[in-house]
Each structure stands twice: as C-alpha cells, then as structure tokens.
Amino acid sequence: MNDIAPLAVPPEQADAPRPKITARNINVHYGEKHALKDVSVDVPEKGVMAFIGPSGCGKSTFLRCINRMNDTIPICRVTGDLRMDGRDIYEPGLDPVLLRARVGMVFQKPNPFPKSIYENVAYGPRLHGLAGDKTEIDEIVVSALKKASLFEEVKDRLKDSGTSLSGGQQQRLCIARAIAVRPQVILMDEPCSALDPIATAKIEELIDELRTNFTIVIVTHSMQQAARVSQRTAFFHLGKLIEDGVTDQIFMNPRHELTRNYITGRFG
C-alpha cells in the first residue's frame, strides 16, 4: 500500500475516506484499439462512486478491469497498477476466481440463471464453500434476498424460476446473487438501463441502502442517476479519465471544460 503514490487531492476533499481501490496508469488495449489511456483513480471505501461519460468512453472497460472480467476476452491486454486494499489484483499468482468472490458484479441486462430463485442466490455461496449445511445456505439466501429488498416479494415462491420475475425483480435478484458471496465491492454496469422508472427508483433506493456496507462502483448513462446515488463521480471521455471528485462538485462546479459541456448536454 505504501508504494502507491497518493493522487493530488484537492483541498475540499482532504477528508475523503481511505481508498478501497487504487488505479494508476491503467491502459487497456483491445487488439489494436487503445480503449483506456492512463487512467488513475481512487475509489473510496464504503460509498457509491459513479462513472459517467459518453458511449464508448471506456467506463465499462475500466469497471471490468476491477474484477478482471476482461481476462475472458482473449485479445484484451491490461497494463498498469490496479490494487484493492493495497494488493495488486493483477499479480500473477492471483486467481481471478477469488477476486470475483470479493468483487461482485451486476450487469446491464438482468441475467438470472434459468433456475429457481433460491438456486440463483445459493449458487455463489455453495461454490465458495461459504456455508456448511442446508440451514446455513438457507440463512444466506434469505439474508441476501432481504438485503436486496426482494425477500418480501418472493418469499412464497423461492422454487419458481428466476426468469419468471419482472425485469426489476430480476435485477434485484442479480444483486442478491452478488451480495450472497459477501463481496466487499459491487460493480454495477448500467444496472437500470433495461428497467422502467419505477423499477429504477427501487434499485436506486437499494443502492443507497447498500452503500453503508459495500463499496459500490456504478457505471451509468443517466446523469440524474449519478447525481442521485453517488457520492463521488468520475467522468470519462475517449478512453481518458477527465476528472473525478465529489459528485456535487462535479455537477455544480466542474473543473474541466469537457465535463461542463457533457453535463450541460452540449454533447453525448
């Protein structure tokens, strides 16, 4: 942890919590394409950080670096220094499987397994041996569903298929599935883009509840959403991190011309 140079912190953020994730000079190449250019950012512990920016700016790519989902793409190459709690998550001996148990992910389109609601949530804990017997798994499933504020809606039909739920419920099931393996960080890749406003509101409410226990990184297209749910925001443009900071400051008083233009709707 000590060998990481702290980023220059603007005076108004001197009291920022200690960083959970530190990224320094991250570069990502998809074959010939240089998708991320020298991104350096700190994600503080416990709280919501939003990544915003126009399509193709690299915010999702950066998100997928944090749990090494990019490893599954053969042509993708990641360089730079990315640490969680000071530990290099790209160090050769580290199996991404263990990393992903600590960094959960929620995808753009709800993607529950075509199995029962119960099985959807129980799969992760079983995989990682988090529970010894059936009752422990039951407890984990119930508590994860409760944390994802889905339990009341599905408690009578845990045996039903996860795909029989509505879109918003499916997305909350996916969040419960991610929570069940007790991650420290939850990555959300535009979690509400396939949902209607009411389901979106529920998810946002949920994110607000979860931030006391988890470090949440959310990629979103909706600036309103970023403003509503996040405490910190980072703005990406053409593979570069333009600026990051406290959400209010980014929206009220952006330091950078590009950020201002994007937020005021001049492009994007």
Binding site: T72, P114, Y123
Partner: peptide, 22 residues
C-alpha cells in the same frame, strides 16, 4: 446467451464451472 456465462463468472465461478454448471 453469453450473459449466463458472465453471470456465473461474476459470482466467482471458474471458466470450467461456468461451462459445466450453466
């Protein structure tokens, strides 16, 4: 659909587990 495999990888299944379980 690849989203199923991604979901499995996302909760920490290895590639082989994702293939054989899902």
């Amino acid at each position: 659909p690849p989203s199923i495999k991604e979901a499995a990888l996302g909760v920490g299944a290895s590639h082989q587990q994702a293939v054989f379980h899902h």
